[in-house]
Write a protein that binds this DNA or RNA. Sequence first.
DNA 1: TTGTAAGCGTTATCAC
DNA 2: GTGATAACGCTTACAA
Lengths: 327, 327
Amino acid sequence: MAGLKDIAAASGVSVRTVNRALKGNGYVGKDTRDRVLRAARELGYRPNRLARSLRMRRSFEVAVVAWSTDELHMARIAVLEQRLRPAELSVTVLLGSRHGSTGDQQGLLGETLARRPAGVALFFPPGGDVDRWVESCQQQGIPCVLIDPPEKMPASVRIDRQQGVYEAVLYLAQRGRSRIAYLGGQKDTTRLEGYHRAMSELGREPIYLDVTSVSDQTQAGRYAAELFLEMSPRPDGIQAYSDVMAMSLLAGLHEHAVRVPEDVAVVGFDDRQAASLAWPALTTVAQPNAGIGRAVADMLLETMPDPSVRLDEGICLPTRLVVRDST
Amino acid sequence: MAGLKDIAAASGVSVRTVNRALKGNGYVGKDTRDRVLRAARELGYRPNRLARSLRMRRSFEVAVVAWSTDELHMARIAVLEQRLRPAELSVTVLLGSRHGSTGDQQGLLGETLARRPAGVALFFPPGGDVDRWVESCQQQGIPCVLIDPPEKMPASVRIDRQQGVYEAVLYLAQRGRSRIAYLGGQKDTTRLEGYHRAMSELGREPIYLDVTSVSDQTQAGRYAAELFLEMSPRPDGIQAYSDVMAMSLLAGLHEHAVRVPEDVAVVGFDDRQAASLAWPALTTVAQPNAGIGRAVADMLLETMPDPSVRLDEGICLPTRLVVRDST
DNA sequence: TTGTAAGCGTTATCAC
DNA sequence: GTGATAACGCTTACAA
């Protein structure tokens, strides 16, 4: 494959001149430039990124560290990549396993650092041992942006799930639903807080379809349907923890001939592909995936020229209620 | 960051010796080796992949070129990555846009080649202009495996959709369904052929729920439901082109109080996440995603030592019928 | 306006 | 067993 040297030979100038002509950073005679450019084109020159990075002691790749190939993650990554491309940065996805040992995670950290990326976009790691990542990056002077940590953190992009649920519950109330229940476990605090906030604002007592005991989300909703049937009076609105739970709930309700939304309205959370495919099409709280991708890219771009710039403020993006047929 | 030179200095030997000790390829005195290894560990040495690749004139990255972040694609990529990791190969995903111009695609090809990857795993490109990719790779001596082309091709991994549909239709017949229809457009030949083969083997006339005119898959099923209602006698089994269409069909049927599977059985195709979440949980033809990932990895691994090895045979993987509640 | 040459961190060829 | 040393393809200080 053609290199600078080949072009130099072909156009009868030195390597340095070729470089200048190609990069346009120094003085080059017009004739010379044209000759060089043409030679480059004819030889099908493609700069060698490896050599370039080695010499410049920095790479032009952003490492995205993810722990699953979930569609929501991927949507964010796709936007991130689009946004980074104009800045001549390419994206490499490193996939860790969600259930990997601490050692595995350490290994992935090593691999990530070994690439000497221009920046790191880190999905919040399972186990939550985020400090090691952040510190290691800092040490190497690599900007690191954290995606969706559970709490407020510097250099992070979060999602306002609380507000999302809050708004959805208010929406249910506004549509005339008076007994609004929350379907989920008791561990996820943010969404639950949103529910509590809305309910207390409405002056109503919270109703729980508590599925803490069910570990499989795809079954949790069915279990909740049983709970629902035994209640009296029954809830007439349900905010679910996720679309998956909501759809499992729908299945359970259908089986007992409970009508949605006539008897009970259901709201999901996530807005995955499946939500619009559900029957009835699921009203749900959409995560701002594109917004996250953009925000992460912007933060990275902002810190990259000078990694000592500290982003002390993380940002928090709003969700969006997507109304479909289940409410 | 520590390099070979630092280790050499720290342990009082030459760079060459450090290299030998670390790589274990030449003779190194036991003492020396231990000293070097310890120094390396203490300095937290991480080989610089850039320098390594530059020197060895080959990279240790496989470029995966995909055109969407569809969950099926991602599942394949995840397995591919797992399989390549033990061979010290890492995976970089390059995302092209599905609706990009020819120029965009040309650009992506350039970018891919510029990385000088150890191999390329190429999802069949939109527009089908696969030759440019294959030839370019060949020219550079880069092994290239094609994922899921519509036709038999060398160095490709395909899915036997025909057989998948064939088996599903036979299964429906075996479960006592006598009027089995095909829901889909007329353009996709492979799946349709499978349907035709099964029907002719059963000695029955094909029944079409033809949605060629509907471009949006998420609406096609609803439209098909209207068609279904007007038929007499109505089909009692439907093989759909995809899970998405099948779920859209389910919605349409539910709205008209057609019972599934009592009145009509429905089979999807793809086995996406949504299929198991549908109501009723969708029986569907599962794509061999893991198998594809593995096969692509194996082909790549096989050709990589010597790119002149020609894989004249592509392989074709079987699907698997996943029986759930819709049949 | 152009050229020379050093060096980025490896690997690999030789000589000792 | 070990050590100089020359590449790999690029960028860039410094000379001319």
